[in-house]
Design a binder for these strands. Structure first.
Length: 362
DNA sequence: AACACGGGGGC
DNA sequence: GCCCCAGTGTT
């Protein structure tokens, strides 16, 4: 369908219809009671790739811990990551801290107030810049997120593959046209995303009660379940993590992950990754130092196994708990350090590690 | 343009 | 168990 010919008027009535729908159906969420750009920014970063139900308690805790951008700028990054623990995509937390410090130090604590300037901040891309610019400052710039792709693809019958650059331009251009007819850009942006999230859902959209049912290209041809078109599906990589948990005098040895891999700046145990599952300890290649500790140490129990599913990796983990003899307690590999349980609880850790600790020592 | 980056929910 | 969801930065 050619949405540029707007014979039935949907292109100009779309935004007001959704604004009206939003007034009746919007959820009461904490970040909808503020126009403080700091809090809107915080909520938007948390909600990237994250469902409202999962993000909401994190937002509450962050606002409590850091009421202003200056508070966040002064925070210890480890503490911030600890608050972020469990949300995933930890670069969001690192970028959050970096931008908080930038706004505090270089912009005197005043958040950028235009789409253009917001885009310059680390962790703020086109979506988040549009969200903050419209919600906090009323700028007439459209948000284009996954919800928007879905709603527009269906209503306007766009069959382009949304993963392509060309399609992104198509959607951005249409979105820019549609927001021109909005009574209030902020309300319209909230409305179209809320509509996608709770009404025009990926599976089983509620077409029978849809306010644009008779203008929806997908509904009128019975193809709503086929849109939007998305080509790329990430294959899941299989990984095998052999963890060695060294224990001595009630302390455990952990290290900060610094390699360019998942969970950067989070803490885990000594890790030997193998490219296939190893059933026997002797089959795992070990550095001399570690080999000696394991040889002379005491394997406390059979290894504990668990699986951590990420969107793009399946990690099969095996945890070997080793009691280290006194003589070797000071000969750990350089990156490992001893931590008491109370210290460990304050360190940011991947869910895989938290689950193991809870299960083994909780 | 392709890829990497966590975790959770529905059925 | 297998499917779904999704912005930004880097290469």
């Amino acid at each position: 369908m050619n949405w540029q010919s707007d014979s039935n008027g949907i292109r100009t009535t779309f935004a007001p219809i959704l604004e009206q729908w939003y007034a009746l159906h919007k959820r009461d969420l904490p970040w909808r009671h503020t126009v403080d750009p700091y809090r809107i920014w915080l909520s938007e970063i948390i909600l990237q790739q994250t469902r409202v139900a999962q993000g909401k308690p994190y937002y509450e805790r962050f606002v409590e811990a850091y009421p202003t951008v200056v508070d966040m700028a002064q925070a210890d990054e480890r503490e911030l990551l600890r608050l972020w623990q469990g949300l995933g995509y930890y670069s969001r937390a690192r970028n959050l801290h970096q931008t908080a410090r930038y706004v505090t130090d270089k912009l005197a604590g005043k958040f950028p107030d235009t789409y253009h300037d917001l885009l310059k901040m680390k962790g703020i891309g086109t979506y988040t810049a549009a969200a903050i610019a419209s919600f906090a400052f009323g700028e007439r710039v459209p948000v284009v997120d996954g919800n928007v792709y879905r709603v527009l693809a269906r209503v306007f019958g766009i069959t382009e593959d949304i993963t392509t650059t060309a399609a992104k331009k198509t959607f951005a251009s249409l979105a820019m046209q549609l927001i021109q007819s909005a009574n209030d850009p902020a309300t319209y942006n909230q409305a179209i995303m809320e509509f996608g999230a709770i009404h025009c859902t990926p599976v089983a959209p509620d077409c029978l009660l849809c306010p644009v049912q008779q203008q929806c290209a997908a509904f009128l041809t019975g193809r709503q379940h086929l849109l939007p078109v998305k080509s790329k599906k990430a294959p899941v990589r299989e990984r095998f993590f052999n963890y060695f948990i060294f224990r001595h005098n009630g302390r455990l040895a952990l290290r900060e992950r610094t390699t360019r891999d998942i969970w950067q700046n989070l803490y885990d145990f000594h890790l030997q990754e193998t490219d296939e599952p190893k059933t026997a300890l002797r089959d795992i290649p070990l550095a001399d130092l570690v080999g000696q500790i394991i040889q002379e140490g005491v394997l406390v129990a059979p290894p504990v196994e668990s699986v951590q599913l990420l969107s793009h990796q399946r990690i099969r983990a095996k945890f070997y708990l080793i009691d280290v003899p006194d003589a070797l307690a000071n000969s750990l590999p350089i990156d490992l350090q001893w931590y008491l349980p109370t210290e460990i609880s304050k360190l940011p850790k991947p869910v895989l590690i938290t689950n193991y600790l809870d299960q083994q020592f909780g």
